[in-house]
């Protein structure tokens, strides 16, 4: 008989948790390096940060958190057997993901129009790399959520929404460090 393992206690798929921890570790390393480089030029980093649009990033935070909430509600509805509501919530969550990407795209476009590119200052190396890599995860989630609205088993929805919450989790750590810490 198989002995119970500590990982059995984790909700959902173990592989999804490995992915969550791996992604957190990657972004944590990125943020730690960002703050380490900042030590060499705190004034320059502060000036570069002041060129960011904090209001847009704040709106994007509300958008992503609300999208995560809709995804969590979708999983709950699917558990209760309310497939139609679950599908609608998943599509709504994906649409908010699209809105996040649109705002992020506008932010990148405004930087480009102002002549700010990745090598303008070391701050922008990290800004484009970390927020761009995060946006790529949002794009993946935007594809994944409608996919599980179509193939709507409880397990599929659990995995896709866990991925989406990971994207949310990374953003709540990324947003304050890149945009708010002065």
């Amino acid at each position: 008989m198989r002995q119970p393992h500590a990982s059995d206690e984790l909700p959902g798929e173990l592989l999804m948790w490995i992915l969550i921890v791996s992604e957190l570790a990657v972004f944590a390393a990125g943020l730690a390096v960002f703050l380490s480089v900042r030590i060499t030029d705190p004034e320059g980093f502060a000036q570069a940060q002041d060129m960011l649009d904090r209001r847009a990033a704040g709106i994007n935070t509300v958008v992503l958190i609300t999208s995560g909430f809709l995804a969590a509600m979708a999983y709950r509805m699917r558990q209760l057997g309310q497939r139609g509501k679950a599908r609608l919530l998943l599509i709504s969550a994906a649409l908010l993901g699209v809105l996040f990407l649109w705002i992020k795209g506008a932010e990148f476009a405004s930087k480009s129009a102002a002549g700010i590119v990745w090598d303008t200052h070391p701050f922008f190396n990290f800004y484009f790399l970390l927020t761009g890599f995060h946006a790529a995860h949002v794009a993946a989630g935007v594809v994944l959520l409608p996919l599980v609205a179509w193939r709507d088993t409880v397990e599929n929805i659990e995995d896709a929404t866990a991925f989406w919450h990971m994207v949310d989790l990374v953003w709540v750590l990324l947003f304050p460090v890149i945009y708010l810490l002065r």
Binding site: R54, G58, T61, V62, I65, V172, P176, Y179, L180, R182
Partner: peptide
């Protein structure tokens, strides 16, 4: 989550 996010943005 919304309240905490608005709080940190307002603080900044």
């Amino acid at each position: 989550l919304i309240a905490l996010s608005l709080g940190s943005t307002a603080l900044a």
